[in-house]
Amino acid sequence: MTLSPAPPHPKDEAVRVSGLSRRFGHLLAVDSVDFEIGRTSIFGLLGPNGSGKSTIIRMLCGLLRPTSGEARVLGIDVARDPESVRRRIGYMSQRFSLYDELTGLENLTFFGMAYGLKGGALARRRGEVIEIVGMKGYETRRAGALSGGWKQRLALACAILHEPEILFLDEPTAGIDPVARRSLWNLLFEMAAKGTTLLVTTHYMDEAERCDHLAYLYLSKLLAWGSPTELKAREDVTPKGMKRVEIRHKDVVGLLRLLQGSEGVREATIFGENVHALVDDGVDLALPEGAEARTVTPSLEDVFVTLTRRASGV
């Protein structure tokens, strides 16, 4: 087999999902989802636990068959030809799934062989990925003995051995410390800059802000997708005749109660030391002493809170 990627067809988007659904018994885990991912972008798949993120990724990798709808990866229908897709994608599952009793190097050797790398080419590529993920000096430790952040680097190294065109990362930063999280994201940016398309699932808002495009899943359905800017500008997030205000006050809990009881306030949520509220235009808020209000563009969290509330009919 050859490992050099087929020449990219610029007209093909990296991923195109249409009407994709997956049922487990009575549970509809993914409910007719549509989205596209362009090449060389970081695409974020957001949603609370159980919203169907992993199920979508597993269908994109050919691990699960869709119940209906279609998933195309690099222009190929995954359900029809999973083998061709697998050679060109990398996958890092939600759960650490390398061999604990093997060292990092041995894990890399094994997965390299699984992708058909041999001899000198394998050794060279192994060295390269150790360099890329920055785990030199750690590669001879048993994988099981590594801490969370290093485990994720090793898993990433295994997933990119065969120079995949698209990387699917299922909650790569779950359960690792903030410093490790930041450096992992720097790695992802570097890879995207070098031409790899990334699909990352997360439920961290700060990570969502870093993505070029986002899709937001809630209860198995896709509620919205687009760039962060597009999402913030959505009319259904800040409808005509309303505005979003950020109010700063020392007693945010008291302020929240007050706002929730006020005429003309559609929504109010605590964000750190502030309360974000969706307020009808022309309403004069009776604010307590010392509170400062200013009109803001919605944050991504505002967007998702609003969309989620609407979808669940609250």
């Binding site: 087999m1 597993r58 990798c61 050919g62 691990l63 083998e83 697998r86 050679r87 994608i89 990398g90 996958y91 599952s93 759960r95 650490f96 799934s97 390398l98 061999y99 604990d100 997965f111 699984a114 992708y115 058909g116 295994c158």
Partner: peptide
């Protein structure tokens, strides 16, 4: 049980 089967399944093995 350990989840490594899934990781193996995405390789062309």
């Amino acid at each position: 049980e350990r989840g490594t089967l899934e990781q193996l399944m995405v390789t062309p093995v």
